[in-house]
Amino acid sequence: MTVVGIDCGAKNVKALILEEDKILAKSSVLSGFDQKAAAQEALDLVLKDASLKKEDLAHITATGTGKEEVGFSLGTITEVGANAKAINSLFPSVRTVIDVGAEEGRAIKINDKGKVIDFAINEKCAAGAGTFTETMARALEIKLEEMGSLSLKSQKAVPMNAQCAVFAESEVVSLIHAKHAKEDIVRAVHDAIADRIASMVRKIGIEKDVALVGGVARNIGFVDSLKRDLNLDLLIPDDPEFSCALGAAFAAAEKAKGG
């Protein structure tokens, strides 16, 4: 049985084809200003990659902030529910899932069966999610992908006061003018966002093991800051940004089986 999980995120639409427990293909497309079109493109890409047609699919489940935009899906699942399913399958020992995407951060507490016990969300404020790092990268004139490794070179972070991405932009510019090393500023940026994510996680109570997913988990500088703040190790899947899509695919498979 072949199913598709599609995660319509604020920045990227991710699609994934699952055949039984095997991932056949994955795709990621920029959401741009037309999530509907991006979702279609992401679906077309995975189908092409797996040499399949839409008719071959037993079910399609959508998740992500734009899940209602996905015209061709047969069902939806919340991002919290999708992450719980995916992580319970990838790392059964995990009880706390942290998901940091472009515009939202989530902390989810799950039991050994992957059932959601509690969750907290940071949303509607750029300071609490990946957009913050991206905005700072632009102010620093550094590529987003370079932020992580640069951050690890820092010996000490400079203090940063702004709690708003717009105000932090100007603070970063004045830190550059004050001749602070870029790596120290980058580290301060990661420490700041990690601090906000960590306090959201503490709201639900941290229970080990802890997994980190979402696109921002690719940023090794952020991961380092978050580990330091929480003072524990984090399990990160190989493709952390596909966690939600994988969970949606599991949900699709359950639906197709009549579950």
């Binding site: 509690d118 969750f119 907290a120 006061n161 702004a162 709690q163 601090d195 906000r196 306090s199 959201m200 503490r202 709201k203 639900i204 109570g205």
Partner: peptide, 15 residues
């Protein structure tokens, strides 16, 4: 003052 959502979070667990 600019971060009490986070400073006060430990006293306000979700459950």
């Amino acid at each position: 003052r600019k971060k009490i959502k986070y400073s006060c979070a430990p006293c306000k667990p979700t459950s």
